[in-house]
Each structure stands twice: as structure tokens, then as C-alpha cells.
Design a protein around this nucleic acid. Structure first.
Lengths: 143, 143
DNA sequence: ATAATTAAAGACAAAGTTGTCCTTTTTTAT
DNA sequence: ATAAAAAAGGACAACTTTGTCTTTAATTAT
């Protein structure tokens, strides 16, 4: 469904939100280990998540690392997808038709419509903070 | 959601099933035109669909082209996905966890479960023949 | 101030995807 | 038999994705 980079991005953000804070930043190796992703590749992804939107924060030097500001916990997975450039997937036609719409539907348009709605809801309703709360309540895994 | 190749594959199969027959085979340029796909690339994809599974038939020479045997009309989109090597997408974890399962769930497992079920149903219930029938009933597009 | 630590940035490489073209093979029509 | 038509198959190129490594810059602790 998503690229490797996007999968790693979502997993990394959840882990950082769960285990990190401004007082206790997480270093790259720890993050990569926790989500079982290639460290150098993960570094690139985390840069993307810090750069424009500052969904996560990064600090260099001793005791540096990554954390997420509390106000960013209201952001949803949809925002991660947008940053990673895969947000359009949730609007696109299943068959890749550029002009697919209600008045110009592809053969799967009607069946896919409710599924697409649920996919959108899933990614727009699950905030990072909620995911962390759910993870604390149950036993979930990121690797 | 799917690769370009798979999108083209699904659209091509539907078009061939709708417009072609053993008596009236469809040539590559006509197919590529109808589904707005790059002709040479489409040729490669059609080869994949003929080779092992013979989901579609091909005949060389004058008046040659592509068509689909009536018995293949019971096959579903899922079969196309399998041939194109993207069938696993329907079983995989949204976050790409290799070990994600009921007892080892990722944070999105529960929300995604019913959606995955519907995606599977969508691709396994829509036979090629049914899609053609639906297309004849309404106004649908493949480009 | 200096050294150590950490992420940032850039270069690079391998593999996969998308797409094009050319030659060969098969089949049909004449 | 021959020529024409069509797909099959192989080679190739551009681009993207995934992944690695090295150097640089920033920060902190001493």
C-alpha cells in the first residue's frame, strides 16, 4: 500500500512519540533498532519529517536526538503521508484513471468508494497522540 | 495502491473481455489506445497475462491479437493481482510489519482489519465477467 | 577552549519500475 | 511459396526507490 520509506516514517513517528520527549531525546540507532529499519535510510526519512513541517524535532550534539512537541500529537497519520508525498493515494482512482469521478467512473468506482472513505477516516482520525494512548493500553508492536 | 503495470493490466483485461472474442481479436494498438497506456509497455504486460496462467489468449499474424476465453470470465481481479505479483498487498500489514498478526498486532491492526476484509472482498468478488456485465449496464470508463 | 557526540547534507550504488525500440517468430492471405 | 501482419522476446535507457557511506555542522560536557 505504501512505500518502505512511508512505512518506516509512520513507525518512527509513533515510536518517537511514545518513548521520547524534550527531556529524553531518542538517538537514531535506538529508533532504527526499535522499528527494525536501516539506520542510514531512517536518517533520511527523519530529516524529511523535521525539515519543513517540523512534525518531529531534532537536536544535534551530545544528548541530542529526536523528539516530538506535544502540540504535534494532534496531527494524524494523514499528515505523515502528506509529508512523505503519498497523501494523494487516498484521493486517487484504484485503477489510476486521472479523470475518474462520479460522472466519469471507472468500473470499480462504486465498490471502492466506501472503502476509500474508510481509508481516509482511518488515517485522518488516528492522531499520533491517540495511537500512543492506545499503545499504552494494549500490547502493540512496531517491528 | 498498485503499480502502473498492474493498473494497466486490470484495465486491459476488462477492455479485452468487453470488446474482444476469439472471432474478433484485439490488436495491441487498439488496446493501448482504449486504456490510454504506453503501447510497448502494455505489450510486456499482456505477455505476462498470457504466459503462465493464460488469463488472456494471444494469436500472432494477420488478424491476430488478444482475446479472453469464456471460462476465464469467472476469474477475479485478485487473479490479475496475483499474476502481476501484487496479490500479497491484500494480506500484508499496513505498516509493513512482517510479523503483524492478531497476537502481535501493529497499532493500526484493529482499524485496518475490516478495511482489509472489504478490499479482499472487492477484488475476490468482482469477476471479469461481472465487471463486463456491469459496464454494459452503465456508463463506465477505462481511460 | 577543546573534544566528543550527534544529526544534517551530499554523494554514491544497487535494484526495481516504467517505458522504448529492434529483431525474431508465428500465422495468415495472396 | 511469398509477403505482410501481428505478437514474442531481448536489449536498453531514464527514472525512482532503497540503502550506504563520508564529510560537515552544531551542540554539549569537560
Amino acid at each position: 500500500m505504501f512505500s518502505k520509506a512511508t512505512e518506516y516514517a509512520i513507525r518512527a513517528v509513533i515510536f518517537i512519540a511514545q518513548k521520547g520527549s524534550e527531556e529524553h531525546k531518542l538517538a537514531l540507532p535506538e529508533i532504527a533498532e526499535a522499528i527494525q529499519s536501516p539506520p542510514f535510510f531512517t536518517a533520511k526519512i527523519l530529516q524529511k519529517l523535521t525539515n519543513g513541517s517540523q512534525l518531529i524535532q531534532s537536536v544535534r550534539g551530545p544528548n541530542g536526538g529526536f523528539y516530538i512537541r506535544p502540540e504535534k500529537l494532534t496531527w494524524t497519520i494523514r499528515e505523515i503521508l502528506n509529508i512523505m508525498g503519498e497523501g494523494e493515494m487516498l484521493d486517487k482512482c484504484v485503477l489510476g484513471l486521472k479523470l475518474c469521478s462520479e460522472i466519469n467512473p471507472c468500473p470499480l468506482h462504486e465498490v471502492y468508494k466506501p472503502i476509500k472513505t474508510q481509508l481516509n477516516a482511518m488515517f485522518e482520525n488516528k492522531s499520533i497522540g491517540l495511537l500512543v494512548k492506545e499503545m499504552e493500553a494494549g500490547q502493540y508492536f512496531l517491528m
